[in-house]
């Protein structure tokens, strides 16, 4: 338990570590032998780091720049900037289908988030507050879910959803996304719930709060940070999921962004500028999420240690 607690506190970007580092650096100054060799190797490593950053960033930069080029320019002038900036590629991409995929993704993601947080936090509440043999079994059942992978379930899920008449509906995605996000969510939230002091709820019971009241009025509000983490992780998953989205949805009007982009590519033929504009539109929400909510995201990913 302590491990998880520490994790929660040890935020990547806390000033605490910064101060420590600064102190270390100061101490270091006195002991450091300021030889030339050290400086050179530092600069070589720095160069390597920047080079790697360039390797990561350049293709993305190219994607953004080329999204405003015409096909001829992308084909014949790979490296150059556009001679005419075709901003209208974005409007074209948006009206030619990306808007539909975008709102489908938005709907699926939002409903998935709501269900995951609601159902997951309720289960975590039980799993953290009660003890019995059945609770232990339920906990193992939940944790075991993390180890199951969607690939193995793909065909049975397809059969089941067909049988339920849900294939080719957004529910096929929402229900399966919720199921596959629940185990991690429950574990994360449960760990947080366990750290909430018992005294709080005891006083609440004295005040006449019901069980539900304790969950809704005490546990949930106290757990906002971990719930934000859950939301970010779920959004990341639901927005980017590809396999289910490809197999369970056929209809173009229902597709989400990851699978819709494949249709979009086929439909566009060689209108590469518009295709790239569509790709940029698809990527932007998650990059924004990273920039603004990185601490929650990083915490969740590292605690869950399960790739999206």
């Amino acid at each position: 338990m302590t491990k998880t607690n520490e994790n929660i506190k040890a935020d990547l970007f806390t000033s605490d570590t910064q101060i420590k580092k600064a102190r270390l650096a100061k101490m270091d100054k006195t002991t450091r032998r300021t030889n030339l060799q050290g400086k050179i190797s530092k600069n070589i490593i720095l160069l390597g780091l920047l080079l790697f950053a360039f390797v990561i960033l350049y293709p993305l930069f190219w994607m953004v720049v080329s999204s405003m080029k015409s096909y001829d320019e992308i084909y014949n002038n790979v490296w150059g900037l556009p001679s005419v900036w075709h901003f209208e590629n974005y409007a074209t991409a948006w009206s030619m289908g990306i808007s539909g995929y975008f709102f489908n993704s938005l709907f699926v993601t939002l409903v998935t988030i709501v269900l995951v947080v609601l159902i997951g936090s309720m289960a975590a509440f039980t799993l953290s507050r009660y003890k019995s043999r059945w609770i232990d079994v339920a906990l193992i059942f939940t944790i075991g879910g993390i180890m199951m992978n969607p690939q193995v379930a793909l065909i049975p899920l397809f059969e089941m959803l067909t049988w339920m008449n849900l294939i080719n509906t957004h529910w096929a995605l929402i229900l399966t996304y919720v199921a596959y996000r629940l185990p991690l969510t429950i574990i994360l939230i449960r760990a947080f719930f366990l750290s909430i002091p018992r005294e709080l709820e005891e006083s609440a019971i004295i005040d006449g709060c019901s069980e539900f009241g304790i969950y809704a009025r005490i546990y949930l509000p106290l757990s906002i940070p971990i719930i934000v983490t859950t939301i970010v992780l779920t959004a990341y998953f639901a927005w980017n999921e590809f396999m289910f989205a490809t197999v369970f949805i056929d209809s173009d009007v229902l597709k989400t962004i990851p699978s819709g982009l494949m249709n979009f590519r086929d439909a566009l033929r060689t209108d590469w500028g518009v295709l790239l504009a569509g790709m940029v539109i698809a990527a932007i929400p998650m990059v924004i999420l990273l920039v603004f909510l990185q601490r929650y995201l990083v915490r969740g990913l590292s605690e869950g240690s399960v790739k999206g």
Binding site: S251, D252, V253, N263
Partner: peptide, 8 residues
């Protein structure tokens, strides 16, 4: 109206 591509 509904539509999907080729193989699909």
């Amino acid at each position: 109206v509904d539509y999907v591509l080729n193989d699909a």
